[in-house]
């Protein structure tokens, strides 16, 4: 199993990472090597084995559905690259 250049480009688009044509070549080789290693898992018989979600057998804790935090917009926005009037600013999304 190998990852061809088109697949690299497709996956990079899904991951929202811009990659150059030079990078596509390198990544195609590197990712194929990693995938070849991962491919060895196919040797393992896993019929009837449930996929593991957590190493600790516990019930996910639940709490009452009520607000426990908030009212700190200045803290939330403090690290924003751009903000105005209590909002995060992004490039125009709707034409």
């Amino acid at each position: 199993m190998s990852i061809d250049k088109n697949t690299v480009k497709k996956v990079a688009r899904l991951a929202r990472i811009r990659i150059s044509d030079d990078e596509v070549d390198v990544l195609s080789g590197e990712l194929s090597k990693i995938l070849a290693m991962i491919g060895q898992l196919n040797e393992v018989k896993t019929d009837g084995v449930e996929p593991m979600t957590s190493v600790i057998e516990m019930q996910m804790p639940e709490r009452e559905d009520k607000v426990t935090d908030g009212g700190i917009p200045e803290k939330i926005l403090a690290n924003a690259p751009e903000q105005t009037a209590g909002f995060f600013v992004v490039p125009k999304v709707v034409e």
Partner: peptide, 11 residues
């Protein structure tokens, strides 16, 4: 891949 790996993880 992902579910296969989670099964092997259990083993």
């Amino acid at each position: 891949y992902y579910n296969k790996a989670r099964r092997v993880r259990k083993l």
